[in-house]
Every structure is written in C-alpha cells, then in structure tokens.
C-alpha cells in the first residue's frame, strides 16, 4: 500500500478534526480497508484510526434500545448482545472469522455498506438508527446503494441504536470463496410489523423486501412468501451465482427464517 500519515485520535471531536482534509480517510478495524489499500484501490494521505476512541466502544441499554458504539468489534457485539438481542449476536458472531471479528467493527461495516456485508442487513432489518458525530439517521435512509450511504465526507458512525424485535433471525447463505453472504436475510418480527432485509443479493446493496413484509404481516408463515418472488434483473450476477439464483436464495432464506421463527 502507499504510505500515509497515521493519526490515532482519542476522541470523536479530534477524529472529526483530523478528517477535515480531502485526503484523509477514517479506519476502524480495517478488515476491509487494509486489503483495499494493499490492492492500491484506496490511497489516503492521512489515515485516521478510530480504534483508540473509548467513547465509541461498548454495548449498553438505551431505553428500549441497545446502543452499540461504532468502534465496537464484532466479537464484543456477539458476546454482549447474546442475551439482549440473540439474532444480532448471532449475526455478529458469524461475520468473517474469529480473527476478523477481533478487529472489525460495526461502525466500519455500516459506513462501508459493502453490498455483501452482514451488518447492513441487521441494521436495516431491525430498523436501527445510525448515530454519527453530527446527527442520527434512520437505517431506512442510511443505506443508499452499493458502497453508498447518507454519510457526508468526514462523517463518522459513532454508534448504532437497535430496537429489539419480539423475535428475529439472520439466515445466511455464504459465498464459498469470500465467506461473505452470497445472499442473507434478516427477518425481524415486532408484533405489529415485520421487517425483511436482504444483503448480498442486489446490485443496489442491502434492501427491504417489502412484498414479503406485507405478506408476513398478515400471515407469519413460510407459505406466505411462497407465491412471491424478487426480480432477478435487479440481482447481482457473478461467478458464484446468477441473478435468478440469488432471487431464489432470497426467497428460500426468507422462508427458512420465518419457519425458524414461526
């Protein structure tokens, strides 16, 4: 990778100040950014590490919600939400592998919005709120297409707040090489509403499968989805799966999620 000036602020305010220049790039766990920089697909002049900011770490209750600092590692989330939000714990505990989970963070994953990442599905499926250094953004407004988000230049995800559904589950079908989701579905049941978020499948990144949500609201059973389908045309098609195959997986994973919860 190209060399850069390395700074490691200890507060959000200092990090935001350090990110003022055009050529500065924030890095949290770096599990995606470091390989990207090695491939010279990213070459910041200043790299602002977010790993020493204590105020961005931890998991705690925040009223009805769970507050998770943006700098909290997947391993910590998996451990500390095991009781309070098992579906989220399970999602976090299956990202990458144990070593990746020791470093990678929820804030980094959400800010990056990789179309095959797990956390965007968890956040969108839960109806989470993304907290930044300057505002709060509803997950529905945050994810704006592959690697695109509502974040402004230099804006940092400092925390994510999750409402806790009555029941939820994350069904993941892995891409056999990268072990990212080929298609994964997060289904959350809030009693009166159902949210279904799909990652890995669409060329627009994570999305809510609203037809399925509507069908499941009336009849929370795998059968409710059997007559539905997502359009193969909007799906990613690559070496590992055609659009039609990802469309199939979207449906099957949704059905299996519902069957496991029903």
């Amino acid at each position: 990778m190209q060399n850069f000036e390395f700074v490691r602020p200890t507060s959000v305010a200092d990090a935001v100040a350090a990110l003022k220049g055009d050529e500065a790039q924030p890095m949290s766990g770096g599990q995606t950014l470091m390989p990207t920089m090695k491939a010279r697909l990213a070459a910041p002049e200043i790299l602002v590490s977010l790993t020493a900011i204590d105020e961005m770490k931890g998991v705690r209750k925040d009223g009805d919600q769970i507050w998770i600092g943006g700098g909290t590692t997947h391993a910590t989330v998996a451990r500390e939400t095991a009781e309070s939000y098992p579906a989220l714990s399970s999602l976090a505990g299956r990202i990458g592998d144990p070593s990746v989970r020791s470093r990678g963070t929820i804030g980094g994953s959400i800010a990056n919005n990789d179309p095959s990442a797990c956390y965007p599905a968890g956040a969108l499926g839960s109806g989470a709120t993304i907290v930044t250094d300057r505002r709060e953004i509803a997950a529905d407004d945050f994810f704006q297409g592959m690697f695109m988000s509502a974040l402004d230049e230099g804006e940092i995800v400092t925390a994510v707040k999750f409402p806790v559904p009555q029941k939820a589950i994350y069904q993941k079908f892995i891409q056999p090489a990268s072990r990212f989701p080929l298609t994964a579905v997060f289904v959350a049941h809030f009693g009166d509403t159902v949210r279904v978020a799909v990652t890995g499948a669409s060329s627009d990144g994570v999305f809510r499968w609203t037809e399925a949500e509507e069908a499941l609201q009336g009849n929370f059973s795998a059968d409710a989805v059997s007559g539905l389908s997502v359009s193969a045309a909007m799906m990613i098609s690559d070496l590992h799966g055609s659009g039609a195959y990802r469309a199939q997986l979207t449906k099957v994973m949704t059905q299996r999620a519902v069957a496991a919860l029903a």
Binding site: F6, G30, S49, S99, S102, R103
Partner: peptide
C-alpha cells in the same frame, strides 16, 4: 486472535 497482515504496526 488477530490477522497480523490486517493490522498496522502503529496500531
């Protein structure tokens, strides 16, 4: 456990 190829020495 950490992958030492994905962590900066400075970190």
């Amino acid at each position: 456990p950490v992958k030492a190829c994905a962590m900066l020495a400075a970190e």
